[in-house]
Simulated assay, not measured.
Amino acid sequence: MIAYEEVQVPVTGGELAVLRWPAREPDAPVVVALHGITANALSWGPVARLLDGRITLIAPDLRGRAGSSALPGPYGIATHTDDIAALTEALGLDRVVLAGHSMGAFVAALAAVRHPERFGPLLLVDGGIGFPAPTHLSPDELMTAVIGPAMDRLSMTFPDRAAYRSFWQAHPAFAGAWSAEVDAYIQRDLTGDEPAMHSTCRIEAVRTDGIGLFDEEVLTAVRKLPAPATLLWARRGLMNEDQGLYDETRLAAADLGGTEVTPVPVRDVNHYTLLTGEAGAGEIAHHLLTMAATPGPSGA
C-alpha cells in the first residue's frame, strides 16, 4: 500500500475528507475518483498503487461515509455532484478526468453534466448505466433490491476490528482476493468502541442515495455527457454470482448508441474485485493513464 495524504475541503455544511496519492511530477495529470454507496476513498488504494506515481489520484469519502460521516444532509446524488465540484474548486483543479465505481459512477456522470467546465473524460466502473425502477416496490423494498446485504451491515455491531475483518473475509466477492489494501479499505469504514463497533456509513445517507439512483435526471445523465466515457463492466456480480450488474443483453436494452459511452467488459472479476483486485485495478489504471494522456485541458 502506497502513502497518501488526507486533507479537508470545504463543502456545504462542513468539510469533506479527501485522500490524495501524489504523482512523482508536480505537473502530472489529475484524476478524481468516487467510491460506491457503502464504500470509502480507500477502495481506490489498489488503483493508486498501480498508477505508480504517474497520476495524482484524489478520492473523497463521500458525504455520510468514513471521514465525511459527520457531514449533514440533505443527501442524494445531486448533493454529491455539488460536493465534487466544490472539491475541484478548492483544490484548484480544472477539466480533470473523473472516475466512479458503482454509485460513484452515477455521481460522476451527473457531475459531468451539471458541471461540464470542471471535468473531462469519464471512466465509469460497473455503474452509471441505470434501469427504470420497478413501480410496484416501496422505497425500502427498492433499497433491498439494489444493495441487499450491504444495507443490513449498516445496522450491525462488531466486537472488534478482527471480527469486522472476518465478516468481510467471508463475503463471496472477496474469496481468494483478500489483501492488505482491502483490509485497510474495510477498516476505514469501522468506528465506535469495543464491543459495539459499527460502520461509519449513515443509514439515512445510503438510503437516500440508493433511492436517488432511480431519479430521471440520474438515469439520463449518460445520454447528456459533454465528454467521452468508458464503461468498464464486470462479468460477475456483487456476491460473485455469474450474473453481473451488466451483460450484453442489458447493455443492448440500455441503448447506448448515439451516446458518448463505450462499454468494455472485464473478465474474471466481480463488482468489487473490478476495483480492489489486481487484474481489475490494473485495467482501471490502464484506462486512466490513457485518458489522462489525451490531449486537451487538464487538471492543475
Rank of each mutant, 00 (worst) to 15 (best):
42 L>G: 01
235 R>V: 08
174 F>C: 05
281 A>N: 11
44 W>I: 01
276 T>P: 11
174 F>H: 09
161 R>E: 14
235 R>F: 02
87 L>S: 14
23 A>V: 01
33 A>N: 03
73 G>W: 05
174 F>I: 03
32 V>W: 01
140 D>E: 12
131 F>S: 12
38 T>K: 00
173 A>K: 04
293 A>G: 13
201 C>H: 03
282 G>E: 09
101 H>Y: 09
157 T>R: 04
11 V>L: 07
248 E>L: 05
15 E>L: 01
4 Y>R: 08
167 F>C: 03
49 R>D: 15
265 P>D: 13
163 A>V: 10
210 G>R: 07
105 A>D: 11
234 A>S: 15
122 L>N: 04
275 L>I: 15
283 E>Q: 14
113 V>L: 06
287 H>T: 11
238 L>V: 14
174 F>N: 12
58 I>V: 15
93 L>P: 09
272 Y>V: 02
94 D>C: 13
278 E>Q: 15
141 E>P: 03
96 V>T: 15
256 L>C: 14
84 I>F: 09
269 V>R: 09
243 Q>P: 06
61 D>R: 07
125 V>Q: 03
287 H>A: 09
280 G>L: 09
106 F>D: 03
69 S>H: 13
214 F>Q: 10
128 G>H: 06
11 V>Q: 01
274 L>S: 07
226 P>T: 11
138 S>K: 01
197 M>H: 06
5 E>D: 14
55 I>P: 05
19 L>M: 00
208 T>F: 05
151 M>C: 02
212 G>T: 10
76 G>E: 02
259 T>G: 12
8 Q>I: 00
164 Y>M: 06
133 A>F: 05
6 E>P: 00
87 L>Q: 14
19 L>Q: 05
124 L>W: 06
42 L>F: 02
120 G>R: 10
154 L>H: 04
211 I>H: 01
